[in-house]
Design a protein around this nucleic acid. Structure first.
Length: 248
DNA sequence: CGTTTCGTCCTTCGGTTATT
DNA sequence: AATAACCGAAGGACGAAACG
């Protein structure tokens, strides 16, 4: 069932059917309802290929993800995906998630852009200087970054207030009387980790406390490295009385 | 008579396939 | 080898019938 035959069934023109389905104003409400009902009845679905051809859009938003085995069991990640899907569904758009090996990540972005497979991209886990964002900004493909970066091109992003979050965490521990505080960080080339690390140092300094380098472990990004980091901290000669972990 | 609603006609999209 | 037709839909320009 395509647009043409649907129009024939209804005895009205293709244009009117198209207008009715796509929310154009110059269609009476009664006709619109008739069209919608018929579309439902005959199970009409616009051919996505043809639609893309005509509109130049794919109605797909993508996220390229260097997949590690942990991700699919990661409730935080799934929560984010869930939010994206919810927003896209409202607009009848799809999300495609492209798992990719870390070495191929930039190539995957080029693939998406050059072959116009998506209308837009979401870029997660931003780096201090993020080549992916530099690339996308140059190409002009719409995207939004989850996290900041030092790339200069103007672009949309959303992020948490890492500076404030870490300061609050430190102040919380200070208020409980802790003086020796450790920090387990994600790799510091990740922007969020760097910001939190810097904020930690600032908050400790503001409290007049010195940081013990042995209590600062970076480069943890999974269960195992986190476990090892904590072991290392607790095994030091004067272990901290509290530890902040910057990553779930 | 002015507005609303719908139709006709035409172009466009990017690539494949059939026809000159 | 060049050209045209075609796929299915979007959408703009314009005209006309229906309506209050």
């Amino acid at each position: 069932m395509n647009l043409k035959s649907l129009a024939q069934q209804l005895g009205i023109s293709e244009t009117t059917v198209s207008r009715a389905l796509n929310g154009y104003p110059e269609v009476s409400e009664r006709t619109r309802q008739r069209v919608l009902a018929a579309a439902e009845e005959f199970g009409y679905r616009p051919n996505p290929m043809a639609r893309s051809l005509a509109s130049g859009r794919t109605n797909v938003v993508g996220i390229i993800h260097p997949l590690s085995p942990n991700d699919l069991a990661d409730p935080m990640f799934m929560q984010i995906v869930d939010g994206m899907v919810e927003a896209l569904e409202e607009r009848q758009m799809d999300l495609i998630m492209a798992p990719v090996s870390p070495v191929n990540e930039l190539r995957a972005y080029e693939h998406m852009v050059k072959e116009r497979r998506v209308d837009g991209l979401i870029v997660g886990r931003t780096h201090l200087y993020d080549e992916r964002i530099a690339y996308l900004a140059k190409q002009g493909l719409p995207f939004i970054a989850h996290g900041r970066t030092s790339v200069n091109e103007p672009h949309a992003w959303f992020d948490y207030d890492n500076e404030a979050g870490m300061r609050i965490a430190v102040e919380h521990l200070l208020a409980h009387g802790h003086q020796r505080i450790g920090l387990i960080s994600a790799p510091l080339d990740m922007n969020f980790a760097r910001q939190r690390f810097a904020s930690f140092g600032k908050a400790m300094q503001a409290a007049g406390l010195s940081q013990n380098p042995r209590h600062l472990i970076e480069n943890t990004n999974d269960r195992r490295s986190g476990y090892l980091a904590m072991q290392k901290i607790l095994g030091s000669e004067t272990p901290p009385s509290a530890v902040i972990v910057d990553n779930h």
